[in-house]
Design a binder for these strands. Sequence first.
DNA 1: CACGCTTACTCGTATAGACGAGTGGGCGAG
DNA 2: CTCGCCCACTCGTCTATACGAGTAAGCGTG
Lengths: 262, 262
Amino acid sequence: MSPLPSGLLGDLDPTSDRAVFRQIADQLREAIDRGRFREGEKLPSEADLVDHFGVSRMTVRNAFSILQGEGLVHAEHGRGVFVRPRPPVRRLASDRFARRHREQGKSAFIVEADAAGSHPQVDSLEVKEEKASQDVSARLGSVRRVLARRRRYLLDGRPVEFATSYLPLDIARGTPIAEPNPGPGGIYARLEELGHRLDHFEEEIRARMPSPTEVKTLRLAAGVPVIHLIRTAFDTEGRAVEVCDTVMAADAYVLSYQLPAT
Amino acid sequence: MSPLPSGLLGDLDPTSDRAVFRQIADQLREAIDRGRFREGEKLPSEADLVDHFGVSRMTVRNAFSILQGEGLVHAEHGRGVFVRPRPPVRRLASDRFARRHREQGKSAFIVEADAAGSHPQVDSLEVKEEKASQDVSARLGSVRRVLARRRRYLLDGRPVEFATSYLPLDIARGTPIAEPNPGPGGIYARLEELGHRLDHFEEEIRARMPSPTEVKTLRLAAGVPVIHLIRTAFDTEGRAVEVCDTVMAADAYVLSYQLPAT
DNA sequence: CACGCTTACTCGTATAGACGAGTGGGCGAG
DNA sequence: CTCGCCCACTCGTCTATACGAGTAAGCGTG
């Protein structure tokens, strides 16, 4: 156990009324911000810090748990505590559903990821009829049962997004939309072929901490929120023809919208 | 110290390899989800749970700290641990900058809050010239110095949003935009009067955990992420005339956008 | 050389105890 | 009755200790 390089971290201020574990967290946070520790780099071990600051281990662990909650670091059992690297972000533009983007055969996700040089994957495909939740029913205009299309998106092996599309049965049943692979251009292309020319989308965005299920599905590190996006697609007759409920790892996304200044 | 009502919480499973503090957190989470504890209601005290489960206090505290990280509960020193109430959310529509919404005298924030029956407030007003950050400079087209307008928004006494507008000096200096109160219709009205007719806005949205500064400024509870929104306003000549950097308490907002299906 | 075991180091979980500090109700003095 | 104090209860901070379990490097054996 090598002692900490002197100067890397300072001392505690016993006169301060700031709790010791907060002072330690402050020092580590500042060192990270200043680039003394780089992305992915290992921080001093708990034992190192116990020696350096002369405190008990629980105090050091408390300090680390603060930084974890802030999403700054993550611990790996048996290895150490590391500065959490910022993963590459996926940029979602507001014109991503424009007709011109409906490529042949491949989904927007695949096309875009290929272009960015990363390896895209879609799994957990599930297509089935089910009872509409109260919220989905309200958005689709009081439908009882819906077709649900569930899928998870991964980039370079990392899950980044989990989405479920809900469609009224009278529109989707017996059409390619009810097939696992709906064909080129995705379900929006199919909807238009079925006579539902798309007019506009409405997107609602929230951010919150993930549920335990979401942590598992998206393999989220501590201190990573999720972006919850609910999109409703309207056809030219003003009918809501699809609701898509998406949960995204917030550290993997930047959403981008263009608004007219009308 | 009254014993816990039997049936409210179950027992631990000693054969499970799930950690005890996680099992306790699971039980509390489920009880909250099922409505056994309502919003704002007090959960059993640490001492109660120590007795009920026959574990040490740190184990119970670990369980609570998980739930805090999930934003489900919050602790109040000397009072107890409570189910975190969901505050009323502010809905931001994508047409909120439309010209027709530029009311006389009052800002959009005030008008909207009044309409919703809550008490709006704006403070921390600061208007000054400063050096542009690298990011702001890039967005505004390589300007060195900018006019920065900082303000914090509160609803019913609770801070919900902290925003800074940056404008190029050659546009803003010496105009009402450089005054604390820019007058009716806000700075967008002034920009148009100055010949910069607004064409469109671009908004970038991220979500992440707050920095300690943001926690203080927005008085955020544990487990509440922030929404970071960066808006750039473009005039009809394609010039970026303002960048607005906004940090919002994520539990107080729903963003809503309308997209054409062009 | 290759494989497997040992070992040191890492974080994870849990116990027991101590003191501090904020809150709020109750009780006693005036 | 009212005010102020006290006390019980609450969470916050910190120490000290123990064992478990994952990781990786090194060493010894075949």
